[in-house]
Amino acid sequence: MAIDVTEEVDHTDDTVAGALADIDPQRALRGTAGLLAFVVVWWLASLAQPSYVLPSPVAVGATFYTEATSGGMLTALWNSTLHWVPGAFFGTGLGIAAGVALAWSPLLDDLTSPVVRVLRPVPPLALIGFAIAWVGINHAGAAFIIAIGAFWINFYATYGGVEGVSEDLLDVARSLGVQGDLELIKAVVLPAALPEITTGIRTGIGRCWMLVVASEIFGVAGIGRRILRASNNLQVDVVITYILVLSLMFLLVDVAFRTLQRRALAWR
């Protein structure tokens, strides 16, 4: 058949153009200006305060350098990573699995929905007692707290994504020979819900960095522990240093994940 369909194509921007559009020079410039202004305001504010209330950016910079070169920062970061990674990993995995299962099966959804409603509002910190009693004051205990946080975010994101999968796409898949729940989930549900699922993962891993501080409250070593100890000693420069470390870790992981996400969702 000789049909010319070329003219029918919509030339929407592809992924490369999309990625480049992200680095808008004007936005980057404004962002830099805003950051500089923030540091200047901070510096001016610090002039009138004693350093245990608000240290100057320069003092924080010096502390950051000392912590980074003494090895203290690396140790704290490594310790936090040892519970951040398993916590984020298992929380995310279980959250996605539970979200798919409950959104897919009305039976499971009905059975679990009262329990889910009871457990949902419990803040991860309230479970520290259980973490200590069941797992102990160690990386696994801290990972448990982090996992709880990741779990709910991923659970709800996935649940919403799976619920939104079009019945029509499932019908088409069935008409093309896809049979059984597992096959349908693999062939249609997961790819169709991937935008929501990956947004959940991204939000969740960010939340996990915040929970790192909370999870170390009961004595597990890491960045959070370092922040809490420095707070007790009124070492505000150290506190800010490790807050910056958390922010940088968050930024690093977030950018890395966003790159993966963009690649996985190139079809959008």
């Binding site: 369909v5 029918e8 194509v9 919509d10 030339h11 929407t12 079809w267 959008r268």
Partner: peptide, 10 residues
């Protein structure tokens, strides 16, 4: 090509 880049006829 992905569906988003196709016209209705395609």
């Amino acid at each position: 090509s992905y569906p988003r880049d196709l016209s209705g006829g395609m």
